[in-house]
Design a protein around this nucleic acid. Structure first.
Length: 428
RNA sequence: GGAGAGGUGACGGAGCGGUUGAACGUGCCGGUCUCGAAAACCGGAAUACGCGCAAGCGUAUCGUGGGUUCGAAUCCCACCCUCUCCGCCA
């Protein structure tokens, strides 16, 4: 959510910056509601003051034993109008709130302008795709040849966009997550957290998934009309740790890492990435979350991104870092770096991590604050990034470390997590 | 799921339906005293929003939402959460 003060004082420049991400801010609409709000609120508060004065006088008169019938009658009359106004004000404020919740974040000035992924800017590249000496197969071919990747069973059990892994491949998947957690907790200073995978609507609103993107979520009914939502990323429960909190200045930055499953309905992605386990309803991810002092957030974004990159470096997977353009950044983000890993099976770089600074956008929704240098509560800045998506990392390893016989060499750093196994061999 | 107790400011803890944004204590900040500190004493301190150039004034907030009332932290209803006991359970 944006600062409503900023919208009031300089809506034109906000609208201009939002236009860069092809969001057209309803300036006239906002002004109209805002004008109405002002008039109604001022009048309401005046009448409330009158009511309070009457109540006070009645109390005083009563304590002196005076007759208050006249005062009470007068007060009652004044209150009739008040009740109506209060109701109207509530409606206006609700509309204003709904409006604000639907406005995306303003891109940071360093975000490259553009309308489509084609305008994203490559920032740096690391590693070079190794020469295989044979035609690269994709992970589906390799996994099925190894009989360790079973899409048929997953489809039978659940449906499309699910996968079932077996044996050493399931173990490799687990090893990848363990490795990531160890690096981030032991070397990058993150505190590991285990969190609920089902969350309430307030949490989803806090990080920006609701109210706009309900269709992307899985919901579980609960009680009369309540519901839980399955987390689409650990970002949601982890960031909401600080919702409605005032954290002490000295505890910043808070750095959390969380391995969790992620559930996405992938509504609107029909036909995209239908082959393999690139786009699934359920996948594992190791997520990095930082809660920081506003003045540090862009520096921390660079740091957080480098933490994610470090995993790819140690796995010796070629990748590049891309700054998303204004038209491609997510709803809540002010700036985003995508990290894309090289997939020989597709001869392409594919997203494996997305690292974003949300500035105060999520913090304002969550009322996540710290007590500033002057002793006043101020909004924190929030950041997060995948460090990394586990399933896609597995895909990248399968494709980059494939051998001619469809065996997979195990990256050196993962061997200790695999009982020192050096490779997964194909069955005869 | 059943029975009971409870949710008040940073914390502990008061609070007859009426000058209560909320006693008292602890903690915090400033000051006096002191060579300095402690103690003691004095003073100051909530959050959000609105109007205003400002000083300031106003409104809201005692788990949440409704209701009763001229007036609700105080009364009524619903819900949420916490704790204790019972049942069930990985």
């Amino acid at each position: 959510m944006l600062d409503s003060q900023a919208l009031r004082s300089d809506i034109e420049s906000v609208a201009r910056r939002l236009a860069a991400r092809s969001f057209s801010l309803d300036v006239a609409g906002f002004r109209a509601i805002e004008e109405e709000r002002k008039a109604v609120q001022v009048h309401t508060q005046e009448l409330q003051a009158v009511r309070n004065q009457f109540a006070k006088r009645i109390g005083q008169a009563k304590s002196k034993g005076e007759d208050v019938a006249e005062l009470m009658a007068e007060s009652g009359r004044a209150n009739a109008e008040l009740a109506e106004l209060e109701k109207r004000l509530e409606g206006i404020q609700q509309r204003l709130q709904d409006f604000m919740l639907g406005v995306p974040n303003v891109p940071h000035e360093s975000v490259p302008p553009g309308n489509s992924p084609a305008d994203n800017r490559e920032i740096r590249k690391s590693g070079t795709p190794r020469a295989l000496g044979f035609a690269a197969r994709d992970h589906v071919h390799i996994g099925e040849r190894l009989r360790l990747l079973d899409f048929g069973s997953a489809t039978k059990i659940a449906g499309a966009r699910f996968v079932l892994m077996k044996g050493l491949l399931a173990r490799l998947h687990r090893a990848i997550a363990q490795f990531m957690l160890d690096v981030h907790t032991q070397e990058h200073g993150y505190t590991e957290v285990y969190v609920p995978y089902l969350v309430n609507a307030e949490s989803m609103r806090g990080t920006g998934q609701l109210p706009k993107f309900e269709a992307d979520l899985f919901a579980v009914p609960r009680g009369e009309e309540g519901k839980f939502y399955l987390i689409p990323t650990a970002e949601v429960p982890v960031t909401n740790i600080v919702r409605d909190e005032i954290v002490p200045l000295e505890s910043l930055p808070l750095k959390f890492v969380c391995h969790s499953p992620c559930f996405r309905s992938e509504a609107g992605s029909y036909g995209k990435d239908t082959r393999g386990m690139i786009r699934q309803h359920q996948f594992d991810k190791v997520e990095l979350v930082q809660i920081v002092h506003p003045q540090d957030s862009y520096q921390q974004l660079e740091q957080l991104t480098s933490h994610a990159e470090e995993i790819l470096k140690r796995l010796e997977l070629p990748y590049r870092v891309v700054a998303l353009c204004t038209g491609d950044i997510g709803f809540s983000a002010a700036k985003t770096y995508d990290i894309e890993v090289w997939l020989p099976g597709q001869s392409a770089y594919r997203e494996i991590s997305s690292c974003s600074n949300f500035e105060a956008f999520q913090a304002r929704r969550m009322q996540a604050r710290f007590r500033g240098e002057k002793g006043k509560p101020e909004l924190v800045h929030t950041l997060n990034g995948s460090g990394l998506a586990v399933g896609r990392t597995l895909v990248a390893i399968m494709e980059n470390y494939q051998r001619a016989d469809c065996g997979i060499d195990i990256p050196l750093v993962l061997q200790p997590y695999m009982g020192n196994l050096k490779a997964i061999e194909p069955p005869p």
